[in-house]
Amino acid sequence: MSAVIVFKNAGVGMAPAPETLAESPLSAQAEVSTEVSTEVTTVVSAVAEDAAVKESQTSTDAKSTASQPQGSGKRWWTNIGRRVYVMLGNLVPPLLGLCIMVGLWAFVALNNDSIPGPIATWEAATKLFADPFYSNGPNDQGIGWNVLSSLQRVGVGFGFAALVGIPMGFILGRFTFVNRMFEPVISLLRPVSPLAWLPIGLLVFKRADPAATWTIFICSIWPMILNTAQGVQRVPQDYLNVARVLGLSEDKIITRILFPAVLPYMLTGIRLSIGTAWLVIVAAEMLTGGVGIGFWVWDEWNNLKVEHILIAIFVIGIVGFLLEQFLLLLARRFSYESR
């Protein structure tokens, strides 16, 4: 990285002496065989390009670009080779980690009769996933239905939380008075396990299903409020100054400046919310029953089908992982900094 800076300075500051820029790419290309020198070539030509874009009028830069586009085909190949190498390097450690986990599991299973090993579990899983969407009445449904109804509860509870939490966050972020008013309330309620709210939900809604959704609402709402509020507070003063000198109306300020600036924070809030919601739903369903992955785990425990419990653990983990990845992808798509 330091090489970049050194060359960049030489390129810009010493522009009256074009030899410095014109020579270095050639001399570096003479020994293209070693890794280091290819790196230098790319750096120097990148700087030359950069300078040319900036100041295409000056003749010094015109000269420096003229000497640049040689041997780029070779560089292209080494780049691909390096990328494959890096990809393999990235893949090996996680795969190794998973292997160790399965190995440990097999070891424990060998020494403990009640826990099925990887192979037995795999066989049970193939049977289970042969027909994930069967339905024999409310208490006997395929694993696919169970996962989907859990996801539905998370979706509905989270949806309500977003509907309430995002506007709340905007208000808290924008008005210090309201913020300070709600601060003690939020500090008091946030550490409470959402499951503690389950009886209240049962009491109010009289049915298990909305009560489970209610716990999801409670656990999702805090990250939504807090992250949105933080995002609003951190909108750079520069952007607000732009809004002021342009004299934008309040609705334009919200839609064109506040909302896009807060969006990355909001997406972080959504990710945290859904993450916790997925943790909580399993526990809530164990308590409320019905259809859902948490209930299914409990049911299989009652049936003493331990391999199904292990499968459920994997399914819960994989679904949670996919949710997280999807939301990270979404966040990356909408974050203006990394774009």
């Binding site: 520069d238 952007y239 732009v242 400046i257 600036a261 203006y336 900094e337």
Partner: peptide, 8 residues
């Protein structure tokens, strides 16, 4: 610092 809005 130019203060262009990065999302536009």
């Amino acid at each position: 610092n130019h203060s262009l809005l990065p999302w536009m």
